[in-house]
Amino acid sequence: MVAFRVMHVAVTAVGADRPGIVAAVSRVLYDVGGNIEDSRMAILGGHFAMVLIVALPDGADPENLQRALAEPAGALGLITTVRPVADAPPPHAGGTPYVVSVYGADKPGIVLQISEALAAAEVNICDLATHVVGDQEPVYVMILEVDVPPGAGPETIGSALKVIGSELGVDVAFNPMEADTL
């Protein structure tokens, strides 16, 4: 927790993967007094992609940060954005975590149709990753962590997802997220 008032910005950076990207971006954030709170960074299709929620001292100018990022962005070939974001709403409590696995032959529309079905059931997607794995017969794999709201009927949601899966010709599994508290 930071004691003084802060503002939050969303920072993104994407560029061809190479060593030094995180160091260069976090150096700029540190030098402007920023604190990286939540972030995800990963290699996606050979590009290194960063999404960060950064706390800046109150009164800081996001445009200054954008300008400060221009130097490492130029040196490393990064596309960067900086945008102010509102204070995060409190997470809606009471849901049950489930994991959705979708896999099969790649085709357009898998993410769309699965996510539309989840949205229709008021199911919140907390985490989503897709990959194409394998060289000979590539398999499209999508894993989602979702939050099923109280009273939403997980069986109904699971059945709806399986129907979509069979229409798309992909396999769908829908299971409670297993975590053992020891």
Partner: peptide
């Protein structure tokens, strides 16, 4: 490999 949580580190697995 399996997912674990701990009472001494709540809300995290």
């Amino acid at each position: 490999v399996a997912r674990e949580g701990c009472m001494s580190l709540p809300d995290c697995t």
